[in-house]
């Protein structure tokens, strides 16, 4: 029913991703971390998000990662896998994990970049494993009845905004 390229996040993988990044938040001493699809959608997040417009942040990061990949191609690199932005009081570490996923870490001046970088490396295999599992599931799962029993009429009514 869905395109091959759809990304479907099931409860189980969500929980497993969540565990990994919750733990990452603790051991790296960062403030906020999230897993992002390359198209700019947040899959899982952990940490303090108050006063943070996560959706806008996510779209800007996806845009800047896309731009970075584009410029890597122009200079003949397959890609630059990490982006780092350093501010007065906070830093953003952005890491391209695979062809679909981006890990974003926000941390303060008191946390060391070295530690964040190291811990990102440490969790990469677990994230990759969960992701591979997810891909398999998306292939084999008979599509759930998300949109069954909905007629065109119903859809027309849904968008009466």
């Amino acid at each position: 029913m869905y395109n091959k390229t759809d990304l479907i996040l099931y409860d189980e993988e969500y929980q497993r991703f969540k565990e990994v990044i919750d733990n990452f938040l603790l051991i790296s001493g960062s403030k906020y971390v999230f897993l992002l699809s390359k198209s700019g959608q947040v899959l899982v997040e952990s940490g303090q998000t108050e006063h943070l417009d996560v959706t806008s942040l996510a779209s800007l990061i996806a845009g800047s990662v896309a731009a970075t990949i584009g410029l890597a191609k122009i200079v003949g690199e397959s890609e630059f896998s990490v982006l780092f932005h350093e501010g007065e009081s906070s830093n953003i570490y952005i890491s391209l994990l695979n062809e679909r996923l981006i890990l974003v870490v926000l941390f303060s001046k008191t946390t060391s970049l070295g530690l964040v970088r190291l811990k990102v490396k440490t969790i990469q295999p677990s994230i990759q494993a969960i992701y591979q599992n997810l891909l398999k599931k998306m292939e084999t799962h008979t599509s759930q009845s998300l949109l069954e029993n909905i007629s065109d009429d119903d859809i027309d009514k849904l968008f009466d905004f």
């Binding site: 990304l7 996040l9 969500y14």
Partner: peptide, 15 residues
């Protein structure tokens, strides 16, 4: 590509 999130019960679509 739509992102369908069963955990947060959200469908994201890019237009």
């Amino acid at each position: 590509m739509p992102l369908i999130n069963y955990a947060s019960r959200v469908i994201n679509l890019k237009i």
